[in-house]
Design a protein around this nucleic acid. Structure first.
Length: 940
RNA sequence: GGGCGCUUAGCUCAGCUGGGAGAGCGUCGCCCUUACAAGGCGAAAGUCGCAGGUUCGAGCCCUGCAGCGCCCACCA
């Protein structure tokens, strides 16, 4: 088997993926070995693979392949999330496009539609994952609305309800007036926006010419004000406390009291706040703190945020913003509007709909996370759920990488509010609660279970709660529900707790924290031992990738390449603001005049690895991918060279005497060090270091030096069979090992080459995937060879540099004499001399002429090199060069000797450091005198 | 208001428990040398954000400042 002339990723990738999958290599296969397990963060079932997924998947796949090769019983659990609101929106939008909406279908039929949608598009992202080379256990893919997972959801709900942790209550929640559902605190994002602060006078009941002035950004809510509050210590208002004022615009006129509350900031606005308890979280708190005052809780809005019947007739039915305009107008007319001023403030918006969230009083289901104990004495959510979740991180059962994320985690848990888990949508896990005609609530796994549990007669009519659960409720169970819980399956037994969770910081609260809460509670054990938090993938200049900026890259386009026109089309289609299209098109044409070339999955994967330094966001630079595509090409061609020189030849696969050259021993030794470094970097999730180590080993050490040194050895007619066997065995053996070393990051190209080359290294197996990962062998470290090769590596470039500076053609053979610069150093071995001769194209300078060389003297490492050149010599240039070098030497000598003359340094610095410095100074001085001597010769 | 992070070559970033400033890309030369021009060889390029401090010694530790970014909470 041999390799094609050119590296073509597309030709090899699909072939090997199908092979791996059909052979079943992705399933756990080593039942007696210690388990290693990663749960994929389930992408939305409607989703497409974006750069963030691709990055995250590379990390997981690299870890999985690495541990699989290391012999662990390895499981990467794949699956998708039903993503309640997101999916419902996607399907609804599709219906809307056809002029329909979900109410045309009704609940049951709409849900059927969603399942149809899932059947059609739910596999897209899995297909894209395959293109990336991901190796999860596809045979056991899970979906959060699978039967088993749904069963887990119900059981958890029922249990927490029976424990008194889940409760139903009427409270103020974040209401999304577009989606018409409650959302949790986490699903509300606040950003500063421009607005207006309105100053409104509330006339005194007993003196309508006077009054207090309040500031508000929401004048429409004046209509349901329940009080005006001032700070208790605010001297200005002390005399007014307890007085009554008229609420403007109310019909019939309503009067409210001026009260005091600590929450009022005296120096903000006018120091007087209107209290609208039913539509503001702070005001609701005020209401709760002053129950004796009976501050009215009046709801003003309909679910879609229009004015309801509690508003005076003229405003009823108006949208909240239209009502605002009208009221401002009316206040102005009645001379109650004292002032308007521009005011920037943060507006809470639903993260899905973008609509301004309205605090609304509704009945919702909550998970208690704040109570220490329940009224009946059982532990509350704080004690039962939050404290243990904090504890497992504090005591190291769960470790964040990088560690400082634990701080973020604590901070959130320590300040968390109860979790609103009910959603007024259709797509999701229906809440397992039933009501009788009197509104009593019964919670159980299903209706039959409820009847039994609560001993309800058949005559008692029950109807199930209409709401569904927050998507994250089922996601929180993912680490054990996917493994079969509540069944005590072998999978669950084997793989829980999982090894590591790989995820972004953006879902630490949504998901990571909740998995820990649920895992600790229901499994009695943490869901994962480590949490590797990676950064966000941004564009090359650190901008967030977004459709509206038009800077989104599709990982599949980087793998397959894409022409300019389709790329422009893709980026400008379906924009929220079509007016952005022109700018995006222009920028795209400028950035990618020729489209995006086909880089292949391996190059993309390697790019992600190389950019994955700890925790921080990564700026994705296509130039890097191009560079790593070139790296693939380099590996490809190196492999071709290896095959050309080993195929059909004796590589000592079957034994036979072997003699290793200096270069052989050096590359084998170097390989051990790289294996060691890669292993350490893997253990610390430093994929950037892994990538760098592999890149340097293959390109710099193996290709640039070793392969070049092999050429003379393999072509030398004087080489004996043992030497040839030694070189061939090393050439092919090191390459084979490097392929295994790189496989977790670059699975495709390593497999393709390995298949061709492994037999020559004496390996016979169906796939590189199932081969052991290279482990360093300290017995193969050869320090003598490393030292000697280092001298070669110092000398060769020094001679090449001299050529460059003197414009000496590479075709000319240079006569050189090489000698140790100091008597302590041994002379070069014959091997080393041959390497220098070949790589720097030199010949030995005859002793007869070496006394008085017509040429140059250079110092490289611990060696002194004298070069003689026929007719050289640009004496002037050479003088200049030496003078320049002397200058830098002088600086270094000055710095070093200054250091050494410092008594404090001698006394306080560690012995070794002082000695090193002394040796260094001596070396520098030696160099200096050598150069000075040469200078004299030149001038003399 | 509370918390976190970043600032090193033109660009994107490494730099381990403090001990001679690094890589990739880009740039500039010279080479189509028998694996590879998606290549080879070589070169130029940094007051390590600023100011103090600790130390024999600071890119690294401490304090302050500036700029950039993120998270949480929030003043109506």
């Amino acid at each position: 088997m041999s390799l094609d002339k050119a590296y073509d990723p597309q030709r090899i990738e699909s072939r090997w993926y199908e092979f791996w999958e059909s052979e079943g290599y992705f399933a756990p296969a080593n039942p007696d070995a210690p388990p290693y397990c990663i749960m994929i963060p389930p992408p939305n079932v409607t989703g497409n693979l974006h750069m963030g997924h691709a990055f995250q998947d590379l990390i997981m796949d690299a870890l999985i392949r690495y541990h699989r090769m290391r012999g662990r019983n390895t499981l990467w659990q794949p699956g998708t999330d039903h993503a309640g609101i997101a999916t419902q929106m996607v399907v609804e939008r599709a219906l809307n496009a056809g002029g329909e909406n979900r109410h045309d279908y009704g609940r049951e039929k709409f849900i059927d539609k969603v399942w149809e949608w899932k059947a059609q598009f739910g596999g897209v992202i899995a297909g894209q994952l395959r293109r990336m080379g991901a190796s999860p256990d596809w045979d056991n893919e899970r979906f959060t609305m699978d039967e088993g997972l749904s069963d887990a959801v119900k059981r958890v709900f029922v249990q927490l309800y029976d424990d008194g942790i889940i409760y139903r209550g009427k409270r103020l929640v974040n209401w999304d007036p577009v989606l018409l559902t409650a959302v949790s605190d986490l699903e509300v994002v606040s950003e500063e926006e421009p607005g207006t602060m309105y100053y409104v006078r509330y006339p005194f009941v007993d003196d309508e010419a006077g009054g207090v002035v309040i500031g508000t950004t929401r004048p429409e809510t004046i209509l349901v004000d329940g009080a005006v509050a001032v700070h208790p210590d605010d001297a200005r208002f002390k005399p007014l406390v307890g007085k009554r004022v008229w609420v403007p615009m109310t019909e019939p006129r309503r009067a409210i009291e001026i009260i005091t509350d600590e929450y009022v900031e005296s120096d903000f606005g006018t120091g007087c706040v209107k209290i609208t308890a039913a539509h503001d979280f702070n005001d609701y708190e005020v209401h709760m703190r002053h129950l004796d005052k009976n501050i009215p809780l009046i709801v003003l809005f309909t679910p879609d945020a229009k004015m309801n019947d509690n508003a005076p007739k003229k405003y009823r039915g108006m949208d909240r913003y239209d009502a605002r305009k009208q009221i401002v107008h009316d206040l102005r007319e009645q001379k109650l509007l004292v002032k308007e001023a521009p005011h920037r403030y943060k507006l809470p918006r639903g993260d899905r709909s973008g609509a301004v969230v309205e605090p609304m009083l509704t009945d919702q289901w909550y998970v208690d996370l704040t109570r220490e104990t329940l009224p009946d004495g059982r532990p509350g959510g704080k004690a039962k759920i939050i404290d243990p979740a904090i504890e497992v991180v504090a005591n190291g059962r769960v470790k964040f990488v990088p560690g400082n994320w634990s701080k973020t985690y604590y901070q959130w848990l320590e300040n968390v509010e109860d979790w609103c888990i009910s959603r007024q949508i259709w797509w999701g896990h229906r809440i397992p609660a039933w009501y009788d005609d009197d509104g009593n609530v019964y919670v159980g796994l299903d209706e039959a279970a409820v009847r039994e549990k609560y001993a309800l007669p058949a005559s008692c009519a029950l109807r199930q709660d209409e709401d569904v659960l927050d998507t994250w409720f089922s996601s929180a169970l993912w680490p054990f529900s996917t493994l079969g819980w509540p069944q005590k399956t072998e999978r669950l037994q084997t793989f829980y707790p999982t090894s590591v969770l790989v995820t972004g910081f953006d879902i630490i609260f949504f998901w990571v924290a909740r998995m820990i809460m649920m895992g600790v509670n229901f499994m009695g054990e943490v869901p994962f031992h480590q949490v590797y938090i990676h950064g966000l993938v941004r564009d090359a200049h650190g901008q967030k990738m977004s459709k509206s900026k038009g800077n989104v890259l599709d990982p599949i386009d980087l793998i397959d390449g894409i022409e300019l026109e389709p790329l422009v089309k893709k980026r400008t289609k379906g924009l929220m603001r079509p007016q952005d299209a022109d700018g995006i098109e222009k920028q795209t044409r400028k950035d990618f005049p020729d489209g995006i070339p086909r880089f292949g999955a391996d190059a993309l994967r390697f790019t992600f690895a190389a950019l994955a330094s700890t925790g921080r966001d990564i700026n994705f630079d296509l130039g890097r991918t191009e560079g790593y595509r070139n790296f693939c090409n380099k590996i490809w061609n190196a492999a071709r060279f290896v095959l050309m020189n080993t195929e059909g030849k004796d590589c000592a696969q079957d034994g036979g005497e072997v003699e290793l050259s200096l270069a052989d021993r050096w590359i084998i030794s170097t390989l051990q060090r790289s294996e060691d470094a890669v292993g350490k970097a893997m253990a610390h999730y430093r994929f950037d270091h892994v990538a760098k180590e592999i890149y340097e080993l293959i390109w710099n050490h193996y290709c640039d030096w070793y392969v070049e040194l092999c050429k003379p050895a393999l072509n030398n007619k004087a080489s004996n069979e043992a030497q040839l066997r030694g070189s061939r065995r090393t050439l092919v053996g090191v390459m084979e090992t490097m392929l295994r070393l790189a496989h977790p990051i670059m699975p495709f190209i390593t497999e393709e080459i390995w298949q061709a080359l492994a037999p020559l290294a004496g390996k016979r197996a169906p796939s590189i995937m199932t081969q052991p990962y290279p482990q360093p062998d300290s017995g193969q470290i050869d320090e003598a060879a490393e030292r000697e090769m280092q001298r070669v590596i110092d000398i060769v470039p020094a001679i090449r540099k001299l050529r460059g500076e003197n414009n000496i053609s590479p075709a000319i053979t240079l006569p050189v004499a090489i000698a140790p610069a100091s008597p302590q150093s041994p002379p070069l071995t014959d091997d080393a001399l041959i390497y220098i001769k070949t790589l720097a194209k030199t010949e030995p300078l005859q002793p007869a002429t070496s006394g008085q060389p017509e040429g140059a003297m250079i110092l490289a490492g611990e060696m002194q090199i004298t070069v003689s050149v026929e007719g050289l010599t640009d004496v002037e240039g050479e003088t200049q060069r030496i003078n320049k070098e002397l200058q830098t030497l002088e600086k270094l000598i000055a710095r070093s000797s200054q250091k050494l003359s410092n008594q404090d340094f001698i006394k306080k610095a560690p012995e070794a450091v002082v000695q090193k410095e002394q040796a260094r100074l001596e070396e520098l001085q030696g160099k200096r005198s050598k150069l000075e001597a040469q200078l004299e010769k030149l001038e003399g």
